[in-house]
Design a protein around this nucleic acid. Structure first.
Lengths: 339, 339
DNA sequence: CAAAACACCGTAAACGTTTACAGAAATGTG
DNA sequence: CACATTTCTGTAAACGTTTACGGTGTTTTG
């Protein structure tokens, strides 16, 4: 923790100017003799370049921020897992923010871009409000949003297609002969909540199934509340034979409650989750889940950001990642499904 | 992305010197009139303090690095989840590193402390080598290690007590009447692998059970390989009646394989995991698991680091977090344990 | 051998802050 | 009103780099 060596220390020891030291360290053309002296001095002193000073001068921090709604949510984790190596390979460090989906915190993060401690930001907000859009329009560094943002917002955007995702799931359930398909959703004022709710209605109708608002129950996006929502739904609709859950955590809550109620999964009630997190494979019965490509979205977001950092201004781009239905035992596991 | 306003821009507009601007912005005593002018100018220009310049001058970055072995591992995630709010509340940002447990990467992270882009580091290495110790001794910023480090290493240290943890589990299994208790462990050259392996032998003997090396199978710390290890173990020891797994992922692999082999959990084989991750509660049967207090360790590490950052030099401290056995269905779930 | 060309190097300015110091303005005191 | 205090402000230096520019010293050229 002693005062570290600087370029000046090296210059003195090597008997050259700081400019020469800098040149040697950056590989600019220099006399062999000087290179040798500088390298030797740097080596002996254990010199390491000061990133802060370098950033100040170069106006590049080689840091990128990732603002996730919730450190605990496996979907964001899956994104992070892909973002990390892409950015690392390009020489960027990741600064992590957890906003707990609080709008004020997200605005703070956008505002803090003005501090210029990062070169760019990847953000995945749960809600997109007017203030978000306003901040995005004046952001002081490039931003990539994972999630949907209105046309014309000047940021790169990576979208999931939850509409198609829900349709895949409903079609699957319909094909299995299910006709009373309930939905447990998160708050409708969130982007995913709104999209998934609308998609559910649309998909039902595409199958020729009537939409019955009794079939829909709203909670939050977590396991405990998801379970409570399912309990309420079961009470109201005893002949329920399938459940579309707005994410995997809700689906786990559903499994808990169904098991407690003595309903067999999938024989009595088939369950589909969403996000295809690690939990889906870990649960038992394992969970059929709609993968919205969290991993792919993370990767795409990192690549978009890098591209923008390297090539500067250009049209905002939108990448849509197609969903995929991962079928597991909670819909088709007759042989091994059980109480 | 236009050139942002600086202290100089404000000074010009307000008709004062940059020193006055800085004073106002930092709340140092200033004439009311000046405060007003500066605030107004700052407001109009949308000024935000440049964190890089400030860091350079103050020699404080208000950033802390967290180096986790693997972004995908839920145990590290649990730590992160606790570290995050503690540091955030104290005004620190988190820079995330994923070292994939590669020693060279960990050394790199330690080395990069010399760049002074962070004020401190929390690191959780899987192995601690001589090079680690050497780098730790000369680290250019305070470091807190989560995991065990030899006496005398000049860093704060937060330890789990896996020895007691394993003992809790083995005692539990023994009390349930199990006598052929196998162990599936990770590599013995990792710190956790070594500790857990030794603790297993010790705990068996404390119960008066003979140690049989056939009962131990080594793999890695992941699900697939864990499953393979269990399969091998079952082949070799058909009368196995309990399994101590070195972490939850291995235990999930065990559940997969036991189910496929038609062994009932827990009736035929009881299974205990370790780390008590979210997966343990999600699996079915839910997994009895030894909590090594990942969350508590994360919190303790963050607090140690903050304390050190605020109060400077002092004796290195060691905090040990006691383990806790979380009993679930995989050892005692007769009523609902399944095929 | 003088002049031109070149290779290398050092000085100094800049990045955007904070802060020690001294000078100016305002206030208090006799 | 002269002076001593106090309060406020501006100048300049510093943090550790990068880099434009001009000056040496060496080599090439006619």
């Amino acid at each position: 923790m002693a005062e570290g060596p600087t370029i000046t220390t090296i210059a003195e020891r090597a008997g050259v100017s700081i400019a020469s030291v800098s040149r040697v360290l950056n590989g600019l053309p220099t006399r062999q003799e000087t290179v040798r002296k500088v390298m030797a001095a740097a080596e002996e002193l254990g010199y390491v370049r000061n990133a802060v000073a370098r950033s100040l001068k170069s106006r590049r921090t080689h840091q990128v921020a990732f603002a996730m709604a919730d450190v605990g949510n496996p979907a964001y984790l899956a994104m992070l897992r892909q973002i990390q190596p892409v950015l690392k390979a390009a020489g960027y460090r990741i600064v992590l923010h957890s906003t707990d989906a609080v709008v004020a915190d997200e605005i703070d993060v956008l505002h803090s871009l003005g501090e210029r401690y990062v070169d760019g930001l990847i953000m995945s907000p749960l809600r997109v409000t007017g203030r978000h859009l306003q901040m995005l329009a004046t952001a002081r560094a490039p931003v990539v949003i994972i999630g949907s943002v209105p046309e014309g917002t000047p940021v790169d955007n990576v979208r999931a297609d939850s509409r198609t995702g829900v349709k895949l799931a409903i079609d699957h359930l319909h094909a299995l002969g299910r006709r009373r398909i309930g939905m447990v959703n998160g708050p409708p004022d969130t982007v995913p909540g709104a999209a998934r709710g609308a998609a559910y209605i649309e998909a039902l109708e595409a199958c020729g199934l009537p939409y019955d608002e009794n079939l829909v129950q709203i909670g939050d996006f977590y396991r405990a509340e998801g379970g409570r929502a399912v309990a309420a739904l079961l009470d109201r609709v005893p002949d329920l034979d399938a459940l579309m859950c707005a994410n995997d955590l809700i689906a786990l809550g559903a499994l808990d409650v169904l098991r407690a109620a003595g309903r067999r999964v999938p024989q009595d009630v088939a369950v589909v989750g969403m996000d295809d997190t690690d939990l889906a494979a870990a649960s038992w019965p394992s969970l059929t889940s709609v993968s919205l490509g969290s991993a792919e979205r993370g990767k795409a977001a990192a690549e978009l950001l890098l591209d923008r950092l390297q090539h500067g201004e250009r049209e905002p781009r939108v990448v849509t990642v197609p969903p995929r239905l991962v079928v597991r035992a909670s819909t088709t596991g007759e042989e091994e499904g059980g109480t």
